[in-house]
């Protein structure tokens, strides 16, 4: 049994112009200790998927799924008290903007101790010592002093380290990192990613890394899920994805990487834009921008089908010849 199992997850938001579907029929299995990358453009549903899993979507979001379970526990319609015992302990999350994700009114130490106390309890002095150890572990210099600091006294990178310390405090079995480096300086980005990878290996936890950076994916994850406009398009091992992408969107995305455009005068791009609420095509959602489109693509939405070790949502998957 996989650690995380999601079948046909749909997330919808009612709007004035009708229902906006942020996630559409998402399936996902994640094994213990596995690292999965979810890539996609902004608004493709990456974060919403994980927030739905955590039960953190704000009202009036509607979440439906045929199955959504963590370690055999059904996460759908979970009682609040039951959910609170899982979140922060077995499943933890690191967010995109570290500076605003820590409460400005409380010291770093308070917020760390709170996480430990909520799930494990213990004496104050022992908790405090563990908080210092956690800060040390995530590479915060001078943790004895920093534990008294307030978030506004720390840099973005330091705040993210504190967030990570808080997330791993109770040794979760699944860590979700939602674009953990987007808001940080380039030099800090590599450090934070390195830290996450190191902690993942050391604690043997499963990790979902949400990003829109293909470079990050190539370095850090075992498997990749590519999402486009609310739908998962392709699921492959990292190596297979980079060597022979099966979905035309994935291929075009990789084609647009600057590394693959060396010596050219212009970057290759995908023409057109992501469809909005009003102009969603009836067939394949990528059909208006796809260079291999035909009549069937325009009329019949493809479903996710298994293809060797991976899955792809396309009527005409690309051939398996290595590029």
């Amino acid at each position: 049994m996989p650690l995380l199992e999601i079948r046909n997850l749909t997330v919808e938001f009612p709007t004035d112009d009708g229902t906006f579907r942020a996630v559409d029929g998402l399936d996902l299995d994640l094994d213990r200790g596995e690292v999965l990358g979810i890539v996609g453009e902004s608004g493709s549903g990456k974060s919403v998927t994980m927030l739905a899993l955590m039960g953190l979507l704000p009202w009036p979001a509607r979440v439906r799924a045929d199955r959504m379970s963590f370690d055999g526990i059904d996460l759908r319609n979970l009682r609040a008290s039951r959910r609170q015992r899982i979140m922060g302990k077995d499943i933890a999350m690191v967010f995109q903007e570290p500076m605003t994700s820590l409460n400005p009114c409380f010291s770093v130490g308070f917020q760390l101790v709170e996480a430990l106390k909520t799930h494990e309890g213990g004496a104050r002095i022992a908790l405090r010592r563990r908080a210092v150890e956690l800060l040390e572990k995530v590479g915060v210099p001078d943790p004895e002093r920093r534990i008294h600091a307030f978030p506004h006294q720390l840099s973005g990178g330091m705040c993210q380290r504190v967030m990570i310390a808080m997330a791993i405090a109770c040794r979760p079995r699944l860590l979700i990192a939602d674009e953990p480096t987007t808001a940080l300086d380039v030099t800090i980005q590599a450090e934070i990613l390195g830290l996450l990878a190191e902690l993942q290996r050391e604690q043997g936890m499963a990790m979902v890394l949400i990003t829109h950076d293909m470079g990050v994916v190539a370095e850090a994850v075992d498997r990749v899920m590519v999402m486009y406009a609310s739908q998962p398009f392709e699921l492959q091992t990292t190596r297979a994805l980079f060597e022979c992408p099966r979905h035309p969107y994935t291929a075009a995305l990789l084609e647009a990487l600057p590394e693959r455009n060396r010596g050219k005068r212009r970057l290759s791009v995908i023409p057109g834009t992501v469809p909005g609420l009003a102009d969603r095509p009836s067939g394949c959602i990528f059909s208006p921008r796809c260079q291999f489109v035909d009549a069937r693509c325009r009329d019949v939405p493809p479903s996710l089908v298994g293809l060797n070790a991976g899955q792809v949502r396309c009527h005409h998957p690309l051939s398996e010849q290595p590029r």
Partner: peptide
């Protein structure tokens, strides 16, 4: 209640009462 740190507090598995009466009210 719409701030990111409230989402963090809920992600930590804190009770709704603590999220509202401590993390939100304090701000």
């Amino acid at each position: 209640l719409g701030e990111n740190y409230i989402r963090t507090a809920r992600a930590k598995g804190l009770s709704a009462l603590r999220v509202v009466n401590l993390h939100a009210l304090r701000n």
